Simulated assay, not measured.
Amino acid sequence: MKKILIYGPSQFHGGIETYVENVLKTLKGRCVFTILQISNEDMYHSQFIKENELAEIINLGFQSGWKSKLTNINLKKFDKYLEHNKFDIIHINENSASAYWLAKIAIKHNVKVIYQSHNSKSHSVNFSKFPKFLITLLRKYQVNQLKKLKIKRIAVSDKASQFVFPNDTNVEYIWNSIDSKKFRFNKSFRLTKRRFLGIPQKSKVGLFVGRLSSQKNLFWTLNLVKKALKLGIIDYFIFLGDGPLKEKFEIELELLDENLKKRCLYLGQQDKIGSWYSVSDILLMPSIYEGLPFTLVEAQASGLRCLVSNVITKQVQYTDLLTFKELSRIPDEWLLKLNELSKSQNYDRNKYIIDLKKSLFSNESFKKNLEKLYGL
C-alpha cells in the first residue's frame, strides 16, 4: 500500500479538517496515512482519527514566529524526519503558498508532492502586526517559490486556484463529498431541537456555521442579525462554531439586551451539524473571502436557503437555493433580501438530496478523483 503523508489540519474545525477526514475515511485500508501536525495543540478530531485507526498523527515540534523562519528550524526537523521515514506522496493542504518549503524538502527526498489550495485569501495571526505591504511581498515570494517546483497542483475552486497558482492553467479541481444521509432534511430533528431550545415551531430561524474568525465577517454578521431580530425579519438566530474570535464574540453577545440575548443563541462547536440545517430556515455567509465553503454544499443538501457574499465561487452552487449578494458596510440591502427569502419557505426541502447525488460533490465522484490523484 502507498504511504501518504498529509499536512494541513489544525486544532479548529474548518474546510481543510473536513476534507482530510473524508479522505481518510474514503480510502481507509487502501493507503497508509500519516498526518503531520501543524502545532503542539491537538488537531481537530484527533481522538476520532486515532480510535478508528484512520491515520498516525505525528508532532515534530514545529515552531511559529520569525525566529523559526530565520533559523530554518522547522525545515531542518522535516528534512531529518524524511531521512528516516519513506513516503510515496505528501499531500499538502494549505490556504496559501506558505508551505512551499515542505514541498521543496519532499522533492529532495524523492517524494511526490500534491499541493492543494483551499482558500482565496489567507490571514495569518503571526503576521497581523506587520505592515500590509510586507505581507503582500511575502505572499508574492512564496507563490514564486512554489511556482518553481515540480508538483501536482490541486484546488478546491477557481478562486482558490488563482490565489496560490495565479494564471496557471495546469491546475485540477477536487471537490469534497458529503454523506447524503447526514444532511437530508429531517423534520423529527427540527421538532426535537426546537423544542429543546424553546423555539416555537412556526418561528423563522437563521443560522451561521463557521470558524469564528475575521474571514467569516463575524461581527458584521452579528450586527445584521441584531437588526433582523429587532425588525422581526427572523425570530431566532443560531451561531455555531469555534475559533480565535470566540472570546471577543462572547463578550459582544453578553452586551445584548435581554430580549435579543434570548433569541441570539451561540451554541459553540457542534459535531452533528446536519440536524442544525434542519432546525433552520435560512443560512447567512457574508464571508470576506472563501475557497469553496463546504457548509454551503451541506446546507443545499438539506434544502436550506442561503444568503451569501458574492466573493464566494459559483462552483459551490448545484441547486437554486443560493442567493449571492455584494458586501457593503451598511447591511440594509442584505436585510431586504433576508426578509424576502425568509418569507419564501413553502417548498419541499427533501427533494434537494437528489441534486447532491447527481453533483460533483457526490461520494462516488470524490472517490474516483482520489483514486486518480493517488494512482490507486
Rank of each mutant, 00 (worst) to 15 (best):
L267M: 10
Q269P: 05
Q269D: 14
Q269K: 14
Q269G: 10
Q270W: 04
Q270N: 05
D271V: 00
K272F: 06
K272I: 06
K272A: 08
G274H: 15
G274I: 10
G274E: 12
S275Y: 03
W276Y: 11
W276H: 04
Y277R: 03
S278I: 12
S278H: 09
V279E: 07
S280F: 01
S280G: 10
S280Y: 00
S280T: 08
D281P: 05
D281Q: 09
I282E: 14
I282Q: 08
I282H: 07
L283M: 15
L284N: 08
L284C: 07
P286D: 05
P286L: 05
P286N: 05
S287G: 06
S287T: 01
I288C: 01
Y289F: 12
Y289G: 04
E290Y: 06
G291K: 02
G291A: 06
G291Q: 03
L292G: 13
L292D: 13
P293K: 03
P293E: 03
P293D: 04
P293M: 05
P293N: 04
F294I: 08
T295K: 12
T295H: 13
L296V: 07
V297W: 00
V297R: 09
V297G: 08
E298M: 05
A299N: 13
Q300E: 11
Q300M: 01
Q300K: 07
S302Y: 08
S302C: 13
G303Q: 14
R305E: 13
C306L: 07
C306H: 01
V308C: 09
V308W: 01
S309Q: 07
S309I: 00
N310D: 15
N310L: 05
V311H: 06
I312F: 02
I312W: 02
T313Q: 11
K314G: 08
K314S: 14
Q315H: 02
Q315Y: 00
